[in-house]
């Protein structure tokens, strides 16, 4: 079976577009709403959905996404309930790739193999564990390979060429290039630097490259879209969700806006 992620990038690339990857936190503000948000995002042009798995100590997140994690945890959301959510989503959508993005401890608490078995079963396509650099990922890498789940890895502006090469060789699905030194929702994106670094990255890998961490609006999205295969937008959506009113309408219009920029 060709992976959904691969299929999606082939399709987007063939149309000379950039994929829109949207991030939201599972269970924020509650699981039913998250499901509606996912469907809405797909309708309005999202190509891949990154589902944040809430954690009590999300070290790499800015304040917007931290609050999202807190809201989801208040409702008792766990990795298990995120898997159930994907099962529901898949009953009406068998195309859009789903990537779980979270922190080591929640995944490890379930166990690498048990997680992979359930992930395959419900239709999760990839995982991105923020605090799991290649050096610390042996059991997850092994299990992911065995169950055909993509391991998406981060490459940062601080990553050396040598290291970037090594990380690329241990990645699958796509590479997530962090566009800023900082946390999610940062606002200091330097599009020239991103272009240079991604250009170098291309010489090491044929995997699609997605850019994230500093993309919050059409301007920042369009500033880097030409060098990327995908753009990740997260904090902007989690902020809208945090406002608590007319969530679906707001998410729909923001998705549409970003999707239009990327076409």
């Amino acid at each position: 079976m060709t992976s959904r992620i691969k299929e999606t990038f082939s399709k987007v690339n063939a149309q000379d577009q950039t994929a829109l990857i949207t991030y939201i936190v599972s269970g924020d503000p509650d699981l039913d709403t998250t499901l509606k948000i996912m469907d809405t995002m797909v309708e309005e042009g999202a190509d891949i959905i990154e589902l944040g798995i809430p954690f009590s100590d999300p070290m790499a997140e800015g304040i917007s996404i931290q609050r999202g994690h807190e809201r989801a945890l208040k409702k008792g959301t766990s990795l298990k309930s995120a898997l159930d959510l994907v099962k529901k989503f898949r009953s009406t959508n068998s195309i859009t790739p789903i990537v779980f993005m979270g922190y080591m401890n929640t995944f490890e608490s379930m166990g690498a193999e048990r997680f992979m078995i359930e992930a395959v079963d419900v239709g999760v396509d990839g995982i991105l564990i923020v605090d799991m650099p290649p050096e610390e990922s042996s059991s997850f890498s092994e299990q992911a390979k065995k169950y055909d789940i993509d391991i998406i890895r981060l490459i940062a502006p601080t990553t050396s060429s040598e290291r970037a090469q090594k990380i690329s060789s241990q990645s699958s699905g796509y590479i997530y290039y962090i566009s800023v030194k900082g946390i999610t929702g940062a606002s200091n994106i330097d599009s020239d630097d991103v272009k240079d670094k991604v250009g170098i990255l291309r010489t090491y890998t044929d995997l699609p490259i997605a850019i994230g961490f500093g993309i919050k609006d059409s301007d920042s999205a369009s500033s880097v879209k030409d060098v990327a295969d995908g753009i990740v937008a997260g904090s902007v959506f989690v902020d809208l969700i945090g406002q608590g009113e007319d969530i679906i309408e707001k998410v729909a219009s923001k998705t549409k806006e970003l999707s239009k920029v990327l076409q």
Partner: peptide
């Protein structure tokens, strides 16, 4: 690798690994 037995290590986001 910064290990004391199985403990320790360096579980951080990529940006900090080079630092």
């Amino acid at each position: 690798n910064g290990r004391f037995g199985v403990y320790g290590g360096r579980y951080v986001a990529e940006t900090l690994v080079p630092a």
